[in-house]
Write a protein that binds this DNA or RNA. Sequence first.
DNA 1: GATGGAGATGTAATCGATTACATAGATGAG
DNA 2: CTCATCTATGTAATCGATTACATCTCCATC
Lengths: 332, 332
Amino acid sequence: MASIKDVAKRANVSTATVSRVLRNAGNVTEETRQRVLEAIEELNYQPNVLGRYLRRMETETVLVVVPDITNPFFSKVLRGIEAVALEHGYQVLLGDTQNDARLEEQYLNVLPQRQVDGMIFLTARIRKELMEEMARQFPIVLACEYLEGTDIPTVSIDNISSARKATEHLIRLGHRRIAHLSGPMNIILSRDRLRGYYQALAQHDIDADPALVQEGDFTYESGYNVTLKLLALEEPPTAIFAANDEMAIGAIKAVRHRGGRVPDDVAVVGFDDIQMASIFEPSLTTIAQPMFEIGQKAMELLLQLIEGGNVGRRQFVLPDRLVVRDSCGGSA
Amino acid sequence: MASIKDVAKRANVSTATVSRVLRNAGNVTEETRQRVLEAIEELNYQPNVLGRYLRRMETETVLVVVPDITNPFFSKVLRGIEAVALEHGYQVLLGDTQNDARLEEQYLNVLPQRQVDGMIFLTARIRKELMEEMARQFPIVLACEYLEGTDIPTVSIDNISSARKATEHLIRLGHRRIAHLSGPMNIILSRDRLRGYYQALAQHDIDADPALVQEGDFTYESGYNVTLKLLALEEPPTAIFAANDEMAIGAIKAVRHRGGRVPDDVAVVGFDDIQMASIFEPSLTTIAQPMFEIGQKAMELLLQLIEGGNVGRRQFVLPDRLVVRDSCGGSA
DNA sequence: GATGGAGATGTAATCGATTACATAGATGAG
DNA sequence: CTCATCTATGTAATCGATTACATCTCCATC
């Protein structure tokens, strides 16, 4: 592999001049510039970025840590991130933690090791202190998930109010026995959605029945299995609010396998509005998150942090909205 | 940020010794080892990997280039790659090209720049010569998609024979007017599946009707739109073979929106066996690819290349199988 | 007690680029 | 003509780790 020295030798200049040509820093005559470019061409030279990284101590690369690459929700957020990054000449790399907090911590180490200039976490399952200590020294932004009582810049929706909105929709349709398929309780997002669910019940004087709250793990399978349990109750629910669309689809399938109909026998509401929510039959009533915008905003914040600016207000709450479709019936 | 020199100073040893402790290379007394470890602890030292990378000229990182991170098929392949990589201490980074060949070429440059030790392409849409030239100098493996007449190591299924199998299944069910929703024709995979379709027709003396072959782009929307065109034909097809599951689902939705039933009026077969294929109703008859295994095999090959070994046979064709479900009817 | 070998540690070169600083040559003002 | 200024280019330090090689100590062996 040719290095900058080889190019310098061939063009009969110093490495400094080659570097200047490479980075388009002025003060090079057109004539030498041409000579250098020729040498680069002839040697098929590609600058070794490791050298540059080491010297400049920056990589113009950001890492996005995703809890589950399989989840379509995150891919949309990612697209928002990519759009902004590309615009600003940053590379985006992806780390998949496969829902493993240990792997998440490992990715965190990439920062002090200087492999990337900043990180966006679409998951926040590691110890808060660890994350905060890192965030004090390096550019970190949280999106979607967040940490309680921290001032790490965060972009998300208001999960409590949107869960309340979803539950209230079911209440307005006349349901009183409403179940909730929650996400894992160690994730704050799940706890928020559960809280919103409880708030809605309380505001309408409906007693919360602990048997109607079941914990899933955001997968289709868990939605299916947990719903089977709910249906086996003496007094099964007439409506289900699932903490994401995949579990909601699992719930619908379970109802059907037990011979029930959706929405007639059981109404279902999901969360996220992934593509499949509108394709699946019955189409899902769900909370639409502005996934692309969340990604954009997160990347914009990260860029500000990297460039040393302050980000001012540190928590950004984007608007969500309830999308009413077929899975919860008309105005019963 | 503390560097190895700071640690050396604090522990009263040379940087060489610190490095030896860090990398667990022997020849260090337990006593000095402890001293060094203490210093590391006290300074909260994290080695800057850029220095190491530059010196060793390797990053123990591989890059996987994906045409579309949104596509669930690829996420499964990715999991296979991750599993093997993790086992061997390699980091996996992801590059999303968003189906843009220009972006794909950009990622290719990451190799001579030494940012990663090797790459796996789950897409192959750039100029063959370019790819081959790079593959001659650096470890590259292709998976899923491939390039014709090249000896870059490749892992995939036999798309021609599996497409033939899928089409034959429809023929056996009595269909004669079978349409094909193909992928983009600039992708060899699409051309292969089309070829398999033609072969099956020919073997059963069915004339191929050009009007029945329509090009999509692997998205749900394209499957939907193109099927509407097919249904508007004077003599519409009684069966549709789609080049992937998402287009197949689009096709089913289109048939329904036109008042038809699947499989009664139109039988549909997909390709890939993504999770939704078994969840969607009617469940999809489809070609199941061993996604996880494709990923595993690809990563294993890449490791061999990185470690300088030869990979022997360069084209690996893994077995696929036809999964019969509800979308194409019983034994009519 | 000289010799040799093994083990522990240090010294300094090295990876490839960037860049602060130095220098040489050209240009212009007085 | 001289000096200041500016431009183009070169020299060499630098980023942080790794590692070839040198050195030193200690101990065993004859």
